[in-house]
């Protein structure tokens, strides 16, 4: 089976992750959507690596993984900080950005 199918799979996962970010108000769930999007990208990278016979795609995925880990740490810390301040993690609550 052609590895391109994994790219299609990655596209579907990416769309699901994006939909989660848009539709869920729970910050943690939305955040997980972001993680899913990142992983979808990783899957695509690995699939490309396989298709082209180059290992660099995997290395890229590795880097993405590391960055994603850092991002998760900071992101969750922010969620906790917000929760402490407001006792909620709903994304609709903080509206300070209102123009």
């Amino acid at each position: 089976m052609d590895p391109i199918n994994f790219v299609i799979l990655a596209s579907i996962l990416f769309a699901i992750g994006a939909a989660a970010v848009l539709l869920r108000r729970n910050a943690i769930i939305a955040f997980m959507g972001v993680e899913l999007m990142l992983n979808a990208a990783n899957l695509a990278l690995v699939a490309f690596s396989r298709m082209h016979g180059e290992i660099d795609g995997q290395i890229m995925a590795f880097f993405v993984l590391v960055v994603a880990a850092a991002e998760v740490v900071v992101g969750l810390a922010i969620i906790i900080a917000v929760f402490r301040a407001r006792q909620t993690i709903s994304l609709d609550e903080p509206a300070e950005l209102k123009g």
């Binding site: 299609i8 990416f14 848009l22």
Partner: peptide, 12 residues
């Protein structure tokens, strides 16, 4: 949101 996400997925 649903439409855009689904559209993005379908498009990709």
């Amino acid at each position: 949101g649903l439409f855009t996400a689904a559209g993005l997925g379908a498009f990709l």
